[in-house]
Structure formats: C-alpha cells, structure tokens
Design a protein around this nucleic acid. Structure first.
Lengths: 235, 235, 235, 235
DNA sequence: TATGAATGAGTGTTCATTCAT
DNA sequence: TATGAATGAACACTCATTCAT
C-alpha cells in the first residue's frame, strides 16, 4: 500500500522498463534494435522516447532534432508529421511523461486500512528513493525545473495537472497525520511543500553534485520524517 | 548579527541595487550610460551584468551575444576583448555573482554572543526571504540549477566554492543547536541539506508557479524551523 | 598519339567545355540550370565547379562560400551536405580537377610505334599550349602554386598523384630520346623538371603579365625543344 | 663580376642579413630585441619587415594585421599612421622588397671585360642558387606569383619595374652569347624567359615539394646552361 | 605620433523547417 | 505516411579600421 510517488513509477507500457539502465544521450545513439517501429503509433512513441532522452540530457535549446530522429530510428521529416515543431514535441513529451502520473495522483492512498501516516510517508519516501532517484524520472523532474521558466505554458500545465494534485494529496496526508496525533505541528498542513522539499533537493543534489558527494537519500529522508513526526530525538 | 545568507546581499558597489526592479530580458534594452567615457572595468562589469540578465532569462544556449552586447551598450566584438567565448563569459559571470558570497560563507555568525541557534537560523531565513526571493539572486540560483548539469565544470566550481562552505556552516549551526539542547534530533547534523532544502524549494516554486500560487515564504520557513526545533506543536 | 598533357584535356562530361569562355568570378553568377530536378551528383558537381571558379579567382581565404553557393545555384547549407567545411571543399575540388589527369599520366605514350622523341614532345607541347594555356586548367595550376604552401597536405597529394608520375614519364621520354641519339645531353635525364619548366613558366607569365606582354607560347616551346634536341642552330 | 640576380642580393641596410636564418611566421612572433625601434622611419621599416614575414608565410588574405603589429613590436593603430590600409601596406612592401633590385637590374654586367656569356650566366645561376633559394627572397618571388593575379596593379608594377628590365638584360646577355658564337640558337633571343624559367621552377619546386624531393638546384642549373650552350653532350 | 580598446560588417557553420519524391 | 536532401535564417566569432587618449 502507501504508494504515492510524485512521479509515476510503473514501467512505461511497451518499453521494457528502461528505468535503471537507460541510454545516456551522449552516446552516438544506439541504432535502436526495434526493427523500425512500424505502426504510426509506435513511431510516434519512439520519437517521444527519443526526445525525452535528448531533451533531458541537453535541455531544450541544445537538443538537435537530428539527434532525436536518429535515436528514434526515424527520418527527420517524420517528426513533423507528428508534431508541429520542436516546441510542440517538447511539450507533448512532458505531458506524455506525466500522463500516467496524473491518474495516480488523483487517488490518494491514505486511510485505506487505518495505517499510520508515518508508514504512508515512509513508503512514499522509499518509493521515491527507489523509483525516481537515479532514473530517467529524475531527469524529467530536473528538466521541468530547468526549462519551466522558459516555458510558462508548461509550468502552468505542470502545476495544474501534477503539482496541484500532489499538494492536495500531501495536505490530506498531513491532516491525516495530525488527526491521528502523529504530527503535532498543525502549521505543516499549510505548507505541504515542506514534505516534498527534501525530495526535490535530493534530485537536484544528485544531478549537480552526485559525482562529488553522493547523498544517502534514504537516510536523509528518514531524518526528514523524524523531524516531521517529532521523533529521532537523542535520549 | 546572525546574517548568513546563501547569496550575498550587499548591494553591488557602483550599481544602484538593481535588486528589486531589474530589467526583464524582453525589453529592447535600457538606454544604459553608453557614454564612451566609461573605463574598461565598468565596461566589463556592464557585460557581466547584461550577461547575467540574458543568461538567467533565456538560459545558456538560447542567449544571443548580440543581445548581451546591446544590453551592455557595447559592440559585439567588445565582449571578446574580455572573454574568450560565450562559455567563458557564462562561467566568469557565475563566479562574479558568487564572489562576494564566498567571503560571507566563510565567516559563520554563530557563537558570537551566545545567541540561540534558533535566532541565528531565523535571521538567516529572514535574510534569505528578503534578499534572495524575488531578486536577481534567485535567478542566479535557478540558473545554476538549470545549467549545472550541462556544465559539470561549473557545478564543480559551485560545489567547491559555495556549497561545501555552506554545508559546513550549516552543520556547525546545527551542532551548535544540538549542543545547546535546542535541536533534539542529532541526525540532522548529518544532513544540513535538510536545513537549506526549503529555501531552494521556494526559489524553484516562485520561479515556476509563483504567478499562480505565490508562496508565503517567511511563514513557510517559520514552520520549517518549528519542525527542526520541535516547536509549534498544537497546545 | 603522343598526347601527354600535364593536365587532362578532355572536356568534362556533361558540362559543354567551359574551356575557353569561362565565367569570371566577378559576374553576378550565371543563371545556371537551377531546376530543382537535378540529382545529387549534379548538385555536387555544380558546387565543385563553382568552387573552382571562385577559388581560382580569389584564392582560398578570400573566397566566400556564399558566392560559391550562389554560383552553384544552391543554398549555402547545401554545401555542407557534401563537404565537411571550406577546406574539405577546396581539397576535394583539386582532387576532382586532377582526377582524370592522373589516369592519363600513368600511361606514357612513348615507344608505341617507334616515333621520334622530338615528335612526342612536340605533340605534348602543342597539346599543352592548346588545352591548358588560356584555360581553366591553367587556373588550377596557378592555384596549386599559390595555395600549395598553405596546404602542405595538398602539395603532398599533388606531388604523389601528379608530379611524381609526370616526372617519371618525362624521364622515360628523355631516356628514350637519349637512347635514340636525339638528345645528346644525358644529364637532362636527371632533371626532367627542365623539360616541363617552360610550360609552368608560360602559365605563370600569362596569368601575371599576359595582358601586357602576351607570350607566343607555341613558338617559345619550339625554341625550348630546339635547345633540348640541339637543333635550331643558325646556319 | 657577372652578378645579375633577378632579386637583389645585398643585405637590407640596417638589418643584419636575415638571409639564411629568418624567422618563420608560424612562431609566436619573436619580441624583436630591437628596443622598440624609436625613430618613425625605423618603425615603418619594422612594419614592412614584419609584413613581409607574415604576407609571404600566409598570403595576403590570411595575414592578420594584428600579427604584423605584434611582430613589428608596434601597436596596431600605428600601421595606419604609415599605410592607408592593409592593401597599401602589402603593395608598398613588395615595392620596398624590390626596390634595391630595380637599381641593380638597370645596370647589366655584361661586356665589361669581354668575359664569356657562359661565365656570366654561370655566375648569375650561382648567385641565384646561393642568394635566393632557401631565403626570404624566394618567399617574395613565390608571393608575387601567388598574389599577382589578385593584384593586377601589383603585377603591372612588377612587370614594369622588374620583369621588363630583367628580360631586356637577359636578351642582351643572350645576344652577347650569340655574337660571340657561344650560343648557336638565335631563337633564344626572342624568349629570354627560357633562360630564367628553370630558376622560377626551382623556387616553386622547393616551396611545394622541397620537403619530399629537394632539388639539387646548382646541378640542375648547370645542365640547363649546358643545353643552352650546346655542351654537356655525351662523348 | 603612438596606442590599443572599441567597433561592426563580414563569414563560416549550424539546424529547425520544408517539400519533392 | 515517410523520407532526407535542400533551404536559409540565425548566430558565434574574427579582424580591418577607427578614434579617444
């Protein structure tokens, strides 16, 4: 139970879970064994997947559609059969990446069996550490943070479709914890951002400084929860 | 006392604190002094300032040196008298922006007069809210987050010169709080990131969603501190 | 028989012998076929031809790819579909211009039917005067002389592929003449350059001073051969 | 006696005969020990000398005035105090390089003491081999050949001031030889170019292929004279 | 005169976008 | 639909030339 990730964690259908072993964008672009992804739908999906790789690795402006096409095993012109232009591909791609997540977010998992809020949050943290940190999903989050300012439309969409729901869910979870007496600071319900904050920070940290000073994400999130639940005190 | 901002808050000498009212990058470029009488140093500073505006607004790849030059009131070629190329300008610019900060970071303000850790942190939070949020400094932080992945060198520099010092300072502050019995969870000393995390989050939040859902940063940071100091509990 | 020009003299296939009336590089660029129906090979050939015109007229550094493109009836970017960069175009162009020549050089025409060495050399000289002097081929030779120093790679190539063969052929011809008793100075076989020298000189002379003092190339080469064959003496 | 080089061989006054050991233009540019060449005239001379180095090494278009200035130990702007523009410097420079030569050319050395024409020509050839081949003078000749087409004005000047005189001198020498019965082919008097041709060829050859196949210039010129004087025959 | 910082037109190269096949 | 050659606007960077000192 208690799964409630900010980012969808289920394997993308049809693509065997590139989660752990994804292709970095700085390799010459693997020929994509997939024998030319016939159906139009597969082609489109291939373009989106390839775009995700490239955009997350290089950012919007520095990504070349040529590379995307190559990586997708498709001709450059084909991209324009599916997307109006580079920006359309980019936005569509973020939407696609977030799609499954939106469904999930709408069904908060709390109060199902009377479990503790702490347990729910721990599960959330653990899932996050396992299914986001070090995966392509982290790249997506980083990308949204990076490009969001330049694409207000995108930020809006992200806010409406993901953040708003997520915040609402978090708040419910917090209120649940308050109601059960687990959380003693009622002010937390006003700022659910404080609950997710450390997760965002870990994503950024690992992306920028992971090489130098990798973070023990799980441990850190545990301390974080201890603070919230007023536990972990010495003595 | 007890000032400890992540980003330098003193007005840049000679430039009347463009802090609050900075020029958005989409205006045709402000008239600028433009008198030929300005010295080489001022010219260089103007380029750096213009670059800061443009890079933070558009990102590295999308920034045109032509625009930087125009904004700096300088010919395009002039940029190359001061910087080897676009990337050199970018890196130098980050360094310059962080320069004063580094000095500040190296002098942690604790233990001066036996003040409480809470007070120190509150001052820090308040300074942050006032001098970073809504400021060009927030843009810089966002920019580092955005471009850091594409400029490992830069991320390294940032880590070495700023983050490492900042983390060390935070840890000292936390240990001080623990020693004084203010903070009861000793685990926090292992993850000073948890202390700064919410600040980073507010920067990102305001940048991306500020228009839709502005955050009461001060209030949020207060709750954050309450969690850390185990206060704010109902009843 | 007895044709042995330093430069290929056969009309380039598909292009009706721009030999005598070639377009000077300072005309706005001839209308050119320009129909989009031309195949990739023709396009490439057009670029090479245009490049030849421009490079020979202006030299490597002063040639603008913009002009080459215009003259070829092609967009600037198209050049880059065929050549890595300006230098690659230049080198390829020299190679192409010399290509047919290399084949010819490899098949010396002597000893075929026991003809005299003098006859062979006369034919060579006549062909040279007719098919090189005043021709685009002369431009190529001049260009190699001009740019060779700046492109050691190119000079190497030219030496290996053309000069070495040419020198060897000349030497054979000379030795043939010596064996037949036509040439009495055996030392000439050590310096075949002396045989070709005057031809090179005429190319340079006509290029530099032709306007002022045109040279009767045929007559001069005849005297040259008289010297070699120890003829032409008064009385 | 019998000195009659196409190119002046006397050391340039005030400059200690950089003949053999000249500075190649691809070195970082020697600081020029000369303590800043004070007098205006020295400055101008320094610029001309530096220009000669650079232009011969890189050609007109590829030479940067910045490099010339650096090599001359002068500020870039100073060049414009002495020369209208890059082209003016270039032309002036060629004139200067040829200046002393013109004087010499006007005083043909033949018939002085009734020496043989062969002796005169041998002396000429020897001087050429010693004082031109492998020296900066060869560079100048090569440069004129290279850039002449692009600078008709320059070629005109060169023709008028040097070539015309030289050709006339050669013709006189040839006629002298004919009159003395040394040269039996009177046709040679119509094409004095045939006399100088091999020298030009050696300059070009050494410049382009000298690395691969250095030429024994002296030996070659001897054979050349043997041909002209109808000597060197076997038996 | 001499300087060298400043200029800005010019050029090689890239890459999103189009379109004939 | 799919292709990929072709396009041409855009941009980083250079360098001859100017000019305030």
């Amino acid at each position: 139970m208690a799964k409630f990730p900010l980012i969808d964690t289920r394997p993308v259908k049809g693509k065997p879970a590139r989660t752990k072993a994804r292709a970095p964008a700085d390799r010459p672009a693997p020929p994509r064994p997939s024998k030319r992804a016939v159906g139009a739908t597969e082609r489109r999906a291939a373009i989106v997947a390839a775009g995700l790789d490239e955009f997350t690795a290089k950012g919007f402006a520095a990504t070349r559609l040529d590379d995307v096409a190559k990586r997708a095993g498709v001709a450059k012109g084909t991209i324009y059969l599916h997307f109006k232009d580079k920006e359309a591909l980019f936005q569509e791609l973020v939407r696609t990446a977030l799609g499954p997540l939106i469904v999930r977010i709408s069904n908060p998992p709390i109060g199902v069996g009377g479990g503790s809020a702490r347990a729910a949050m721990e599960a959330l943290a653990e899932t996050f550490a396992r299914e986001v940190i070090g995966t392509r999903r982290a790249d997506i989050v980083r990308m949204i943070i990076s490009e969001g300012t330049r694409f207000p439309q995108l930020a809006d969409f992200y806010y409406r479709e993901v953040i708003a729901h997520g915040i609402a869910g978090m708040r419910k979870l917090i209120q649940y914890g308050i109601a059960r007496g687990e959380i003693r600071n009622p002010g937390l319900a006003d700022f659910p951002q404080l609950l997710v904050g450390p997760m965002i920070v870990t994503v950024i940290w690992q992306g920028l400084f992971g090489k130098h000073a990798p973070l023990d994400v799980a441990a850190m999130l545990r301390v974080h929860l201890d603070l919230i639940f007023d536990e972990g005190r010495a003595t």
